[in-house]
Design a protein around this nucleic acid. Structure first.
Lengths: 219, 219
DNA sequence: GCTGACGATATTGTTGACAATATTGTTCGA
DNA sequence: TCGAACAATATTGTCAACAATATCGTCAGC
Protein backbone atom coordinates (compact mmCIF):
# COMPACT_ATOMS: atom_id res chain seq x y z
CA UNK A 1 0.00 0.00 0.00
CA UNK A 2 2.97 2.28 0.54
CA UNK A 3 2.86 4.15 -2.73
CA UNK A 4 4.97 6.98 -1.35
CA UNK A 5 7.05 7.61 -4.43
CA UNK A 6 9.66 10.31 -3.93
CA UNK A 7 8.20 12.96 -6.22
CA UNK A 8 10.32 15.92 -7.08
CA UNK A 9 9.04 19.11 -8.67
CA UNK A 10 5.93 21.04 -7.71
CA UNK A 11 4.38 20.52 -11.10
CA UNK A 12 4.80 16.76 -10.67
CA UNK A 13 2.90 16.97 -7.41
CA UNK A 14 0.21 18.85 -9.32
CA UNK A 15 0.14 16.00 -11.85
CA UNK A 16 -0.19 13.51 -9.02
CA UNK A 17 -3.13 15.35 -7.46
CA UNK A 18 -4.77 16.00 -10.83
CA UNK A 19 -4.61 12.34 -11.71
CA UNK A 20 -6.18 11.34 -8.42
CA UNK A 21 -8.97 13.84 -8.99
CA UNK A 22 -9.41 12.55 -12.52
CA UNK A 23 -9.86 8.93 -11.50
CA UNK A 24 -12.07 9.80 -8.56
CA UNK A 25 -9.66 9.03 -5.75
CA UNK A 26 -10.14 12.64 -4.60
CA UNK A 27 -13.84 13.42 -4.86
CA UNK A 28 -15.51 16.82 -5.33
CA UNK A 29 -15.75 18.75 -2.09
CA UNK A 30 -13.00 16.78 -0.44
CA UNK A 31 -10.49 18.90 1.44
CA UNK A 32 -6.89 18.54 0.35
CA UNK A 33 -4.93 18.91 3.58
CA UNK A 34 -1.34 19.81 2.97
CA UNK A 35 0.10 17.44 5.57
CA UNK A 36 -1.79 14.47 4.12
CA UNK A 37 -0.41 15.11 0.66
CA UNK A 38 3.07 15.55 2.11
CA UNK A 39 2.76 12.14 3.77
CA UNK A 40 1.46 10.46 0.64
CA UNK A 41 3.93 11.99 -1.79
CA UNK A 42 6.99 12.43 0.39
CA UNK A 43 7.60 15.98 -0.81
CA UNK A 44 7.95 19.20 1.10
CA UNK A 45 5.26 21.62 2.04
CA UNK A 46 6.28 24.34 -0.37
CA UNK A 47 5.97 21.90 -3.26
CA UNK A 48 2.50 20.90 -2.15
CA UNK A 49 1.42 24.51 -1.78
CA UNK A 50 2.87 25.32 -5.18
CA UNK A 51 0.97 22.40 -6.69
CA UNK A 52 -2.32 23.45 -5.11
CA UNK A 53 -1.93 27.00 -6.39
CA UNK A 54 -1.26 25.69 -9.88
CA UNK A 55 -4.36 23.56 -9.71
CA UNK A 56 -6.44 26.48 -8.55
CA UNK A 57 -5.16 28.35 -11.59
CA UNK A 58 -6.47 25.47 -13.69
CA UNK A 59 -9.82 25.70 -11.94
CA UNK A 60 -9.63 22.19 -10.54
CA UNK A 61 -9.50 23.08 -6.87
CA UNK A 62 -10.63 26.07 -4.88
CA UNK A 63 -8.64 27.66 -2.08
CA UNK A 64 -10.26 29.55 0.77
CA UNK A 65 -8.16 31.65 3.09
CA UNK A 66 -7.11 29.75 6.20
CA UNK A 67 -9.34 26.87 5.12
CA UNK A 68 -7.15 25.46 2.42
CA UNK A 69 -7.80 23.68 -0.82
CA UNK A 70 -10.68 21.43 -1.76
CA UNK A 71 -11.67 19.67 -4.95
CA UNK A 72 -14.06 21.87 -6.87
CA UNK A 73 -17.39 20.22 -7.44
CA UNK A 74 -19.07 20.36 -10.79
CA UNK A 75 -22.74 21.18 -11.19
CA UNK A 76 -24.85 19.75 -13.98
CA UNK A 77 -24.93 23.19 -15.54
CA UNK A 78 -21.15 23.36 -15.55
CA UNK A 79 -21.06 19.93 -17.21
CA UNK A 80 -23.39 21.32 -19.83
CA UNK A 81 -21.06 24.27 -20.37
CA UNK A 82 -18.08 21.95 -20.68
CA UNK A 83 -19.91 19.87 -23.26
CA UNK A 84 -20.81 23.00 -25.19
CA UNK A 85 -17.13 23.89 -25.29
CA UNK A 86 -16.28 20.35 -26.36
CA UNK A 87 -18.84 20.53 -29.18
CA UNK A 88 -17.18 23.67 -30.45
CA UNK A 89 -13.55 22.65 -30.02
CA UNK A 90 -13.70 19.01 -31.08
CA UNK A 91 -15.94 19.99 -33.97
CA UNK A 92 -13.27 22.34 -35.28
CA UNK A 93 -10.61 19.70 -34.68
CA UNK A 94 -12.63 17.18 -36.67
CA UNK A 95 -12.82 19.59 -39.60
CA UNK A 96 -9.12 20.40 -39.44
CA UNK A 97 -8.20 16.75 -39.09
CA UNK A 98 -10.27 15.86 -42.14
CA UNK A 99 -8.59 18.65 -44.10
CA UNK A 100 -4.99 18.50 -42.96
CA UNK A 101 -4.54 15.19 -41.13
CA UNK A 102 -1.86 12.93 -42.58
CA UNK A 103 -2.69 9.60 -44.19
CA UNK A 104 -0.77 7.84 -41.40
CA UNK A 105 -2.83 9.54 -38.70
CA UNK A 106 -6.06 8.65 -40.45
CA UNK A 107 -4.89 5.07 -40.89
CA UNK A 108 -4.11 4.67 -37.20
CA UNK A 109 -7.52 6.07 -36.33
CA UNK A 110 -9.06 3.46 -38.64
CA UNK A 111 -7.05 0.75 -36.86
CA UNK A 112 -8.19 2.00 -33.48
CA UNK A 113 -11.76 1.94 -34.77
CA UNK A 114 -11.35 -1.77 -35.52
CA UNK A 115 -10.43 -2.33 -31.87
CA UNK A 116 -13.47 -0.37 -30.76
CA UNK A 117 -15.67 -2.49 -33.01
CA UNK A 118 -14.41 -5.62 -31.23
CA UNK A 119 -15.22 -4.05 -27.85
CA UNK A 120 -18.82 -3.66 -28.90
CA UNK A 121 -19.14 -7.36 -29.76
CA UNK A 122 -17.28 -8.39 -26.63
CA UNK A 123 -19.43 -6.10 -24.49
CA UNK A 124 -16.55 -4.51 -22.56
CA UNK A 125 -17.69 -0.97 -21.81
CA UNK A 126 -14.70 -0.26 -19.57
CA UNK A 127 -12.24 -0.99 -22.35
CA UNK A 128 -14.48 0.85 -24.80
CA UNK A 129 -14.28 3.90 -22.55
CA UNK A 130 -10.49 3.85 -22.55
CA UNK A 131 -10.25 3.38 -26.31
CA UNK A 132 -12.88 6.06 -26.78
CA UNK A 133 -10.65 8.56 -24.96
CA UNK A 134 -7.78 7.51 -27.19
CA UNK A 135 -9.97 7.88 -30.30
CA UNK A 136 -10.90 11.46 -29.45
CA UNK A 137 -7.31 12.24 -28.49
CA UNK A 138 -6.11 11.03 -31.89
CA UNK A 139 -8.51 13.31 -33.73
CA UNK A 140 -7.47 16.34 -31.70
CA UNK A 141 -3.79 15.55 -32.07
CA UNK A 142 -4.27 15.02 -35.79
CA UNK A 143 -5.74 18.49 -36.14
CA UNK A 144 -2.32 19.89 -35.28
CA UNK A 145 -3.67 22.36 -32.75
CA UNK A 146 -1.86 21.89 -29.45
CA UNK A 147 -3.54 24.94 -27.93
CA UNK A 148 -6.94 23.31 -28.32
CA UNK A 149 -5.50 19.98 -27.19
CA UNK A 150 -4.44 21.60 -23.91
CA UNK A 151 -7.84 23.25 -23.43
CA UNK A 152 -9.62 19.93 -23.97
CA UNK A 153 -7.29 18.07 -21.63
CA UNK A 154 -8.22 20.47 -18.85
CA UNK A 155 -11.90 20.50 -19.71
CA UNK A 156 -12.05 16.71 -19.55
CA UNK A 157 -10.60 16.27 -16.07
CA UNK A 158 -13.78 17.11 -14.12
CA UNK A 159 -15.93 14.86 -16.32
CA UNK A 160 -13.50 11.98 -16.71
CA UNK A 161 -15.51 9.48 -14.70
CA UNK A 162 -18.74 10.53 -16.36
CA UNK A 163 -17.25 9.70 -19.74
CA UNK A 164 -17.11 6.06 -18.70
CA UNK A 165 -20.47 5.86 -17.01
CA UNK A 166 -22.49 6.46 -20.14
CA UNK A 167 -21.05 3.43 -21.91
CA UNK A 168 -22.59 1.01 -19.43
CA UNK A 169 -25.78 1.74 -21.35
CA UNK A 170 -25.34 -0.60 -24.29
CA UNK A 171 -27.65 1.32 -26.60
CA UNK A 172 -25.55 4.43 -26.07
CA UNK A 173 -22.36 2.46 -26.64
CA UNK A 174 -23.60 1.09 -29.96
CA UNK A 175 -24.82 4.51 -31.04
CA UNK A 176 -21.46 6.09 -30.15
CA UNK A 177 -19.60 3.43 -32.07
CA UNK A 178 -21.77 3.95 -35.13
CA UNK A 179 -20.95 7.68 -34.89
CA UNK A 180 -17.27 6.84 -34.76
CA UNK A 181 -17.49 4.58 -37.79
CA UNK A 182 -19.27 7.22 -39.80
CA UNK A 183 -16.71 9.85 -38.79
CA UNK A 184 -13.75 7.64 -39.68
CA UNK A 185 -15.21 7.32 -43.17
CA UNK A 186 -15.62 11.08 -43.38
CA UNK A 187 -12.04 11.66 -42.24
CA UNK A 188 -10.72 9.24 -44.85
CA UNK A 189 -12.81 11.05 -47.47
CA UNK A 190 -11.44 14.42 -46.22
CA UNK A 191 -15.01 15.66 -45.79
CA UNK A 192 -14.39 18.49 -43.34
CA UNK A 193 -17.91 19.87 -43.12
CA UNK A 194 -19.41 16.41 -42.73
CA UNK A 195 -16.89 15.40 -40.09
CA UNK A 196 -17.47 18.57 -38.07
CA UNK A 197 -21.25 18.19 -38.15
CA UNK A 198 -20.99 14.51 -37.19
CA UNK A 199 -18.64 15.29 -34.29
CA UNK A 200 -20.95 17.98 -32.98
CA UNK A 201 -23.92 15.66 -33.10
CA UNK A 202 -21.91 12.90 -31.48
CA UNK A 203 -20.78 14.99 -28.52
CA UNK A 204 -24.16 16.64 -28.16
CA UNK A 205 -25.73 13.21 -27.99
CA UNK A 206 -23.18 12.24 -25.35
CA UNK A 207 -24.37 15.03 -23.09
CA UNK A 208 -28.01 14.15 -23.68
CA UNK A 209 -27.26 10.64 -22.43
CA UNK A 210 -25.30 11.87 -19.45
CA UNK A 211 -27.90 14.34 -18.30
CA UNK A 212 -30.37 11.49 -18.02
CA UNK A 213 -28.10 9.35 -15.86
CA UNK A 214 -28.88 9.33 -12.17
CA UNK A 215 -25.58 10.28 -10.64
CA UNK A 216 -24.23 11.33 -7.28
CA UNK A 217 -21.63 13.21 -9.28
CA UNK A 218 -23.34 16.57 -9.29
CA UNK A 219 -23.50 18.90 -6.31
CA UNK B 1 5.60 57.41 -10.71
CA UNK B 2 5.57 55.57 -7.41
CA UNK B 3 2.67 53.25 -8.14
CA UNK B 4 3.70 50.90 -5.35
CA UNK B 5 0.26 50.05 -4.17
CA UNK B 6 0.26 47.75 -1.17
CA UNK B 7 -1.14 44.65 -2.85
CA UNK B 8 -2.23 41.83 -0.65
CA UNK B 9 -2.96 38.30 -1.80
CA UNK B 10 -0.88 36.25 -4.17
CA UNK B 11 -3.68 36.02 -6.68
CA UNK B 12 -3.85 39.83 -6.76
CA UNK B 13 -0.18 39.94 -7.61
CA UNK B 14 -0.96 37.47 -10.41
CA UNK B 15 -3.67 39.85 -11.64
CA UNK B 16 -1.18 42.71 -11.57
CA UNK B 17 1.40 40.81 -13.61
CA UNK B 18 -1.20 39.45 -16.02
CA UNK B 19 -2.52 42.92 -16.72
CA UNK B 20 0.96 44.23 -17.42
CA UNK B 21 1.56 41.36 -19.83
CA UNK B 22 -1.78 42.00 -21.48
CA UNK B 23 -1.12 45.67 -22.20
CA UNK B 24 2.44 45.02 -23.30
CA UNK B 25 4.25 46.50 -20.32
CA UNK B 26 5.92 43.11 -19.89
CA UNK B 27 6.88 41.86 -23.34
CA UNK B 28 7.35 38.25 -24.52
CA UNK B 29 10.70 36.85 -23.53
CA UNK B 30 11.20 39.36 -20.75
CA UNK B 31 12.43 37.88 -17.52
CA UNK B 32 10.29 38.48 -14.47
CA UNK B 33 12.78 38.85 -11.65
CA UNK B 34 11.23 38.30 -8.27
CA UNK B 35 12.99 41.21 -6.55
CA UNK B 36 11.84 43.68 -9.21
CA UNK B 37 8.23 42.67 -8.78
CA UNK B 38 8.61 42.86 -5.01
CA UNK B 39 9.86 46.43 -5.36
CA UNK B 40 7.09 47.43 -7.74
CA UNK B 41 4.23 45.84 -5.84
CA UNK B 42 5.43 46.10 -2.27
CA UNK B 43 4.53 42.52 -1.47
CA UNK B 44 6.64 39.74 -0.08
CA UNK B 45 8.59 37.15 -1.99
CA UNK B 46 6.31 34.24 -1.25
CA UNK B 47 3.39 36.14 -2.74
CA UNK B 48 5.35 36.88 -5.89
CA UNK B 49 6.44 33.27 -6.25
CA UNK B 50 2.87 32.11 -5.72
CA UNK B 51 1.71 34.51 -8.41
CA UNK B 52 4.31 33.35 -10.91
CA UNK B 53 3.40 29.72 -10.34
CA UNK B 54 -0.26 30.52 -10.92
CA UNK B 55 0.58 32.27 -14.14
CA UNK B 56 2.67 29.35 -15.32
CA UNK B 57 -0.38 27.17 -14.68
CA UNK B 58 -2.30 29.49 -16.98
CA UNK B 59 0.39 29.17 -19.60
CA UNK B 60 1.25 32.86 -19.59
CA UNK B 61 4.78 32.59 -18.26
CA UNK B 62 7.35 29.84 -18.29
CA UNK B 63 9.55 28.96 -15.35
CA UNK B 64 12.95 27.35 -15.78
CA UNK B 65 14.71 25.89 -12.77
CA UNK B 66 17.14 28.34 -11.19
CA UNK B 67 16.49 30.74 -14.06
CA UNK B 68 13.11 32.00 -13.00
CA UNK B 69 10.04 33.14 -14.84
CA UNK B 70 9.77 34.87 -18.19
CA UNK B 71 6.85 35.98 -20.32
CA UNK B 72 6.04 33.24 -22.79
CA UNK B 73 6.39 34.36 -26.37
CA UNK B 74 3.79 33.52 -28.94
CA UNK B 75 4.67 32.26 -32.41
CA UNK B 76 2.55 33.01 -35.44
CA UNK B 77 1.48 29.38 -35.49
CA UNK B 78 0.30 29.64 -31.90
CA UNK B 79 -1.66 32.75 -32.81
CA UNK B 80 -3.24 30.74 -35.60
CA UNK B 81 -4.17 28.02 -33.11
CA UNK B 82 -5.64 30.59 -30.74
CA UNK B 83 -7.73 32.03 -33.54
CA UNK B 84 -8.93 28.57 -34.50
CA UNK B 85 -10.08 28.09 -30.91
CA UNK B 86 -11.75 31.49 -30.97
CA UNK B 87 -13.58 30.61 -34.18
CA UNK B 88 -14.96 27.51 -32.52
CA UNK B 89 -15.80 28.98 -29.11
CA UNK B 90 -17.15 32.38 -30.11
CA UNK B 91 -19.06 30.74 -32.93
CA UNK B 92 -20.87 28.53 -30.45
CA UNK B 93 -21.43 31.50 -28.15
CA UNK B 94 -22.97 33.45 -31.02
CA UNK B 95 -25.39 30.62 -31.71
CA UNK B 96 -26.29 30.25 -28.03
CA UNK B 97 -26.66 34.00 -27.62
CA UNK B 98 -28.99 34.19 -30.61
CA UNK B 99 -31.05 31.31 -29.17
CA UNK B 100 -31.11 32.05 -25.45
CA UNK B 101 -29.90 35.62 -24.99
CA UNK B 102 -32.34 37.92 -23.23
CA UNK B 103 -33.97 40.86 -24.97
CA UNK B 104 -32.10 43.21 -22.62
CA UNK B 105 -28.74 41.74 -23.52
CA UNK B 106 -29.48 41.98 -27.22
CA UNK B 107 -30.64 45.56 -26.80
CA UNK B 108 -27.44 46.60 -25.03
CA UNK B 109 -25.42 44.98 -27.79
CA UNK B 110 -27.40 47.03 -30.29
CA UNK B 111 -26.65 50.18 -28.29
CA UNK B 112 -22.97 49.32 -28.20
CA UNK B 113 -23.08 48.80 -31.95
CA UNK B 114 -24.30 52.38 -32.35
CA UNK B 115 -21.21 53.58 -30.50
CA UNK B 116 -19.01 51.47 -32.76
CA UNK B 117 -20.66 52.98 -35.81
CA UNK B 118 -19.73 56.44 -34.57
CA UNK B 119 -16.11 55.31 -34.12
CA UNK B 120 -15.96 54.38 -37.77
CA UNK B 121 -17.06 57.84 -38.87
CA UNK B 122 -14.78 59.54 -36.36
CA UNK B 123 -11.87 57.35 -37.43
CA UNK B 124 -10.78 56.42 -33.90
CA UNK B 125 -9.32 52.93 -34.20
CA UNK B 126 -8.06 52.91 -30.62
CA UNK B 127 -11.53 53.48 -29.22
CA UNK B 128 -12.94 51.06 -31.77
CA UNK B 129 -10.54 48.42 -30.46
CA UNK B 130 -11.72 48.90 -26.87
CA UNK B 131 -15.40 48.82 -27.81
CA UNK B 132 -14.74 45.82 -30.05
CA UNK B 133 -13.45 43.90 -27.02
CA UNK B 134 -16.57 44.89 -25.12
CA UNK B 135 -18.79 43.83 -28.05
CA UNK B 136 -17.30 40.34 -28.12
CA UNK B 137 -17.43 40.12 -24.34
CA UNK B 138 -21.13 40.93 -24.38
CA UNK B 139 -21.88 38.16 -26.85
CA UNK B 140 -19.95 35.59 -24.82
CA UNK B 141 -21.54 36.71 -21.57
CA UNK B 142 -24.95 36.63 -23.21
CA UNK B 143 -24.45 33.01 -24.17
CA UNK B 144 -24.59 32.14 -20.47
CA UNK B 145 -21.49 29.94 -20.65
CA UNK B 146 -19.01 31.07 -18.03
CA UNK B 147 -16.71 28.14 -18.71
CA UNK B 148 -16.19 29.30 -22.28
CA UNK B 149 -15.94 32.90 -21.09
CA UNK B 150 -13.01 31.91 -18.88
CA UNK B 151 -11.31 30.01 -21.68
CA UNK B 152 -11.62 32.98 -24.01
CA UNK B 153 -10.35 35.42 -21.41
CA UNK B 154 -7.18 33.37 -21.11
CA UNK B 155 -6.83 32.83 -24.83
CA UNK B 156 -7.04 36.55 -25.48
CA UNK B 157 -4.27 37.66 -23.14
CA UNK B 158 -1.35 36.78 -25.43
CA UNK B 159 -2.99 38.42 -28.47
CA UNK B 160 -4.43 41.47 -26.73
CA UNK B 161 -2.18 44.00 -28.43
CA UNK B 162 -2.61 42.36 -31.81
CA UNK B 163 -6.35 42.83 -31.53
CA UNK B 164 -5.80 46.58 -31.66
CA UNK B 165 -3.19 46.64 -34.38
CA UNK B 166 -5.45 45.36 -37.13
CA UNK B 167 -7.89 48.23 -36.73
CA UNK B 168 -5.34 50.80 -37.84
CA UNK B 169 -6.09 49.43 -41.31
CA UNK B 170 -9.27 51.34 -42.10
CA UNK B 171 -10.52 48.85 -44.68
CA UNK B 172 -10.32 46.12 -42.06
CA UNK B 173 -12.07 48.33 -39.52
CA UNK B 174 -14.96 49.03 -41.86
CA UNK B 175 -15.25 45.37 -42.82
CA UNK B 176 -15.27 44.35 -39.13
CA UNK B 177 -17.93 46.87 -38.32
CA UNK B 178 -20.09 45.66 -41.22
CA UNK B 179 -19.71 42.11 -39.80
CA UNK B 180 -20.82 43.37 -36.41
CA UNK B 181 -23.86 45.12 -37.84
CA UNK B 182 -24.94 42.02 -39.72
CA UNK B 183 -24.50 39.88 -36.61
CA UNK B 184 -26.49 42.24 -34.41
CA UNK B 185 -29.36 41.88 -36.86
CA UNK B 186 -29.02 38.09 -36.74
CA UNK B 187 -29.00 38.11 -32.92
CA UNK B 188 -32.12 40.24 -32.82
CA UNK B 189 -33.76 37.83 -35.28
CA UNK B 190 -32.63 34.87 -33.11
CA UNK B 191 -31.00 33.31 -36.18
CA UNK B 192 -28.56 30.96 -34.44
CA UNK B 193 -27.10 29.25 -37.51
CA UNK B 194 -26.65 32.55 -39.32
CA UNK B 195 -25.05 34.21 -36.32
CA UNK B 196 -22.63 31.34 -35.80
CA UNK B 197 -21.56 31.29 -39.44
CA UNK B 198 -21.12 35.06 -39.46
CA UNK B 199 -19.05 35.01 -36.28
CA UNK B 200 -16.79 32.30 -37.67
CA UNK B 201 -16.23 34.23 -40.88
CA UNK B 202 -15.63 37.41 -38.91
CA UNK B 203 -12.96 35.93 -36.65
CA UNK B 204 -11.37 33.98 -39.48
CA UNK B 205 -11.10 37.21 -41.45
CA UNK B 206 -9.52 38.85 -38.40
CA UNK B 207 -6.73 36.31 -38.43
CA UNK B 208 -6.23 36.69 -42.17
CA UNK B 209 -5.66 40.39 -41.65
CA UNK B 210 -3.33 39.85 -38.73
CA UNK B 211 -1.17 37.30 -40.48
CA UNK B 212 -0.43 39.86 -43.16
CA UNK B 213 0.68 42.54 -40.70
CA UNK B 214 4.41 42.97 -40.36
CA UNK B 215 4.90 42.66 -36.67
CA UNK B 216 7.74 42.30 -34.25
CA UNK B 217 5.25 40.47 -32.09
CA UNK B 218 6.12 36.97 -33.17
CA UNK B 219 9.21 35.06 -32.13
C1' DG C 1 43.02 39.01 -29.24
C1' DC C 2 40.96 34.74 -27.90
C1' DT C 3 39.70 30.96 -24.77
C1' DG C 4 38.95 28.64 -20.74
C1' DA C 5 39.23 28.49 -15.72
C1' DC C 6 38.14 30.70 -11.62
C1' DG C 7 35.80 33.62 -8.37
C1' DA C 8 32.20 37.28 -7.18
C1' DT C 9 27.62 38.49 -7.51
C1' DA C 10 22.79 37.88 -8.49
C1' DT C 11 18.90 35.07 -8.55
C1' DT C 12 16.18 31.30 -7.49
C1' DG C 13 15.03 27.01 -4.57
C1' DT C 14 14.27 25.04 0.01
C1' DT C 15 13.56 24.65 4.69
C1' DG C 16 11.98 25.67 9.14
C1' DA C 17 10.02 28.57 12.62
C1' DC C 18 6.39 31.45 13.94
C1' DA C 19 1.78 33.99 13.42
C1' DA C 20 -3.12 33.93 12.19
C1' DT C 21 -7.14 31.56 11.75
C1' DA C 22 -10.28 27.68 11.77
C1' DT C 23 -11.83 23.49 13.87
C1' DT C 24 -12.68 20.53 17.51
C1' DG C 25 -13.30 19.31 22.32
C1' DT C 26 -14.63 20.53 27.07
C1' DT C 27 -16.80 22.59 30.76
C1' DC C 28 -20.40 24.88 33.04
C1' DG C 29 -24.88 26.72 33.78
C1' DA C 30 -29.74 26.66 32.86
C1' DT D 1 -30.03 17.49 27.51
C1' DC D 2 -28.88 21.62 25.31
C1' DG D 3 -26.19 25.57 24.22
C1' DA D 4 -22.73 29.09 24.91
C1' DA D 5 -18.24 30.36 26.30
C1' DC D 6 -13.72 29.02 26.55
C1' DA D 7 -9.48 26.13 25.81
C1' DA D 8 -6.82 22.90 23.01
C1' DT D 9 -5.59 21.36 18.68
C1' DA D 10 -5.07 21.40 13.75
C1' DT D 11 -4.30 23.79 9.65
C1' DT D 12 -2.94 27.38 6.81
C1' DG D 13 -0.39 31.99 5.90
C1' DT D 14 3.87 34.58 6.23
C1' DC D 15 8.48 35.55 6.63
C1' DA D 16 13.43 35.26 6.95
C1' DA D 17 17.56 32.71 6.75
C1' DC D 18 20.26 29.53 4.21
C1' DA D 19 21.53 26.44 0.13
C1' DA D 20 21.93 25.68 -4.82
C1' DT D 21 22.55 27.34 -9.20
C1' DA D 22 23.24 30.59 -12.92
C1' DT D 23 25.34 34.71 -14.66
C1' DC D 24 28.87 37.91 -15.20
C1' DG D 25 33.49 39.77 -14.81
C1' DT D 26 38.46 38.95 -14.38
C1' DC D 27 42.67 37.10 -15.47
C1' DA D 28 46.22 33.78 -16.81
C1' DG D 29 47.97 31.31 -20.66
C1' DC D 30 48.65 30.85 -25.37
Amino acid sequence: MAETLPLLTGSEVADWIRERIRVGRFVPGQRLVEVDIIRQTGTSRSKVREALQRLEGEGLVQIEEFRGASVKSTSLDEVRQIYRARVALEGICAADFARHGSAEQKASLRDLQAQLDRCVDERSPERFGRLNLEWHRLVVEGSGNRTIAELLKRLNVPIHRLLFESFYDEARLRRANADHQRMVALFLASDAEGAEAAMRDHIGDGFETLSKIESEFYR
